[in-house]
């Protein structure tokens, strides 16, 4: 049984870490970008961002004033049990979100869509989102918080098999060019692409590809992994850099996730996880141990399984 107080306390720490500490994989990616950037203005911007991450950590203040919309992903081993049950878990995550909003502090971004009611704590109807995943082994839970910006850089389109890779590339470039101008997407970003599923799951796949995979990770399907490399290069060949200034760094990495879709369609979504790619992860065990990390490690073989029954051997054979 995992103690509910430990969950809330850990969740508060995660909110703090996500808002303040840029994950190492993104930092390394941005340092590499800064080393190659030649545009006067975009070089200045990248250096300012690197200084900003340092300032955030030194001062323990949020790296960006727009602290995004905090959300939660909960991954559970099949044998995990939560003290008080799943509703207690959700209450703990809502409490942690509200407390950290005033504690860090975060910007109270969440408002009612029509009445603009602001509870000043990032909690409200459907907020924060809490999504779940499961793994066949283990009695632990992983708490993952992502504070993604909310307004620009994301789009969806229903494509069809006849659009092919050429159509996928077109929509990808359209998104980068459209939202890259003036730096609306706060690039260079981790670009997540969702392919397939239905409209809603396609958006979910793309968002998770952007937020729950790290810079340098590759899809387990080698052909998709090759596309990821190709799309990263393609995005960086536009000639656009940070803030939409002339430059060569638009995409820190490109992650693609797929889901089976209707035979007539080829849904596509594009998401940009910005210069403040905020995510923090902790694994909690029933004996009270907590281990913090920054890699959500969401897309395990189990999450990408293709077979009816779960069979690790069969999955490996198809991969």
């Amino acid at each position: 049984m995992i103690a509910i107080d430990l969950i809330q306390q850990t969740a508060e720490q995660l909110m703090d870490k996500a808002a303040i500490e840029i994950p190492d994989d993104y930092l390394t990616g941005l340092q590499a970008a800064a080393a190659t950037e030649e545009g006067d203005l975009s070089s200045f911007v990248l250096q300012a961002m690197l200084d900003n991450y340092t300032a955030a950590k030194e001062d323990r203040r949020a790296m960006c004033g727009d602290t995004g919309v905090p959300r939660w992903f909960v991954k559970m081993g099949n044998a995990a049990q939560i003290e008080g049950g799943m509703c207690a878990l959700e209450t703990a995550l809502r409490r942690a979100t509200a407390r950290a909003t005033n504690g860090v502090p975060l910007r109270p971004n969440r408002v009612h869509p029509l009445w603009r009611t602001d509870h000043n704590n990032n909690v409200g109807i459907g907020a924060p989102e809490i999504e779940y995943g499961f793994e066949p082994e283990g009695d632990w839970i992983d708490l993952i918080t992502v504070h993604k910006g909310g307004l620009f850089g994301t789009d969806y389109r229903m494509l069809f098999p006849s659009d092919g890779i050429e159509g996928i590339k077109r929509f990808y470039l359209d998104c980068l060019v459209a939202f890259g101008k003036r730096g609306l997407a706060c690039q260079p970003a981790i670009i997540g692409i969702g392919l397939g599923g239905s409209k809603d799951t396609c958006m979910v796949l793309g968002k998770r590809a952007a937020t729950l995979r790290t810079v340098g990770s590759r899809n387990s399907d080698p052909k998709i992994a090759a596309l990821e490399e190709e799309f990263k290069e393609l995005g960086n060949s536009i000639g656009m850099g940070a803030m939409g200034f002339v430059g060569k760094n638009m995409v820190i990495d490109c992650n693609i996730e797929v889901g089976y879709c209707h035979t007539g369609g080829m849904q596509m979504s594009v998401h940009a996880f910005c210069l403040s790619s905020r995510r923090a992860v902790a694994r909690l065990w029933p004996d009270g141990r907590v281990a913090f990390r920054t890699d959500p490690d969401w897309f395990t073989p189990y999450q990408r399984r293709e077979t009816v029954d779960w069979s690790p051997q069969e999955q490996e054979a198809t991969a």
Partner: peptide
């Protein structure tokens, strides 16, 4: 224009 975007910690200083 602000820089980045998101030099929030530098601006906070």
């Amino acid at each position: 224009s602000t820089v980045g975007y998101g030099t929030g910690a530098l601006l906070g200083r």
